[in-house]
Simulated assay, not measured.
Amino acid sequence: MPIRAFRFQLRPTPGTAHTLRRFAGACRWVWNRAIGEQQRLRAAGEKFSGYAAMCRWLTAWRNDPDTAWLA
């Protein structure tokens, strides 16, 4: 039986494309900030933070006036 392949392409409207770019940028910012926090902890000789601690970080970042755009 031959293997079939399909190619798909998203063609969002300009408004949807803008929303997707904002979402991707927010995800990238959170990822990089979390990596920075983990590296800071490692440099200080502390244990890496787990899932629950990182969830608290995200909540704090969303509630911070400087990063209110995450909300």
Score class of each variant (00 low, 15 high):
38 Q>L: 06
39 Q>V: 13
65 P>T: 00
53 A>S: 00
10 L>D: 07
50 G>E: 06
28 R>G: 13
8 F>D: 01
36 G>T: 03
1 M>H: 09
2 P>N: 01
43 A>M: 06
20 L>E: 11
35 I>N: 11
44 A>Q: 09
34 A>E: 05
25 G>S: 10
47 K>D: 13
16 T>E: 15
21 R>D: 15
20 L>P: 14
13 T>F: 05
24 A>V: 10
3 I>S: 02
4 R>K: 12
28 R>K: 15
13 T>H: 10
60 A>G: 03
37 E>L: 12
34 A>C: 07
21 R>I: 14
25 G>Q: 11
13 T>P: 14
34 A>G: 06
9 Q>S: 12
15 G>L: 00
10 L>M: 03
36 G>V: 00
30 V>N: 05
60 A>F: 00
62 R>S: 09
26 A>G: 15
38 Q>K: 04
4 R>N: 07
61 W>D: 01
53 A>M: 03
36 G>L: 02
59 T>S: 02
28 R>A: 15
58 L>F: 02
8 F>C: 00
8 F>H: 04
58 L>P: 01
61 W>P: 04
5 A>W: 09
1 M>L: 10
48 F>D: 15
9 Q>Y: 10
5 A>G: 05
59 T>R: 09
54 M>F: 04
64 D>A: 08
4 R>M: 08
12 P>N: 12
1 M>A: 10
29 W>F: 14
70 L>Q: 01
56 R>L: 05
1 M>S: 07
37 E>A: 11
17 A>Y: 10
4 R>P: 01
15 G>R: 02
65 P>K: 04
16 T>I: 14
5 A>Y: 09
46 E>M: 13
27 C>L: 14
17 A>R: 13
27 C>G: 11
47 K>L: 13
11 R>G: 01
60 A>T: 05
60 A>M: 00
33 R>Y: 10
67 T>G: 08
8 F>V: 09
1 M>K: 06
38 Q>V: 03
48 F>C: 15
66 D>H: 08
30 V>H: 07
51 Y>G: 06
68 A>N: 02
47 K>F: 10
54 M>D: 00
58 L>H: 06
64 D>S: 07
17 A>C: 04
33 R>P: 06
10 L>T: 04
55 C>E: 04
39 Q>G: 11
14 P>Y: 08
5 A>Q: 03
66 D>F: 11
24 A>C: 09
66 D>A: 14
12 P>G: 05
50 G>W: 08
62 R>G: 03
60 A>N: 01
64 D>C: 01
62 R>F: 01
6 F>N: 03
14 P>R: 12
69 W>E: 11
64 D>F: 01
70 L>S: 04
52 A>F: 06
4 R>G: 05
44 A>P: 02
2 P>F: 07
63 N>W: 05
40 R>L: 08
32 N>Y: 10
31 W>L: 13
23 F>T: 10
49 S>E: 03
21 R>V: 15
60 A>V: 03
21 R>C: 11
1 M>E: 12
55 C>H: 06
53 A>E: 02
32 N>M: 11
41 L>Y: 04
19 T>I: 10
54 M>G: 00
46 E>Q: 15
54 M>C: 06
49 S>A: 11
48 F>W: 15
57 W>Q: 13
2 P>E: 00
17 A>D: 12
28 R>E: 14
24 A>W: 04
22 R>V: 12
54 M>R: 05
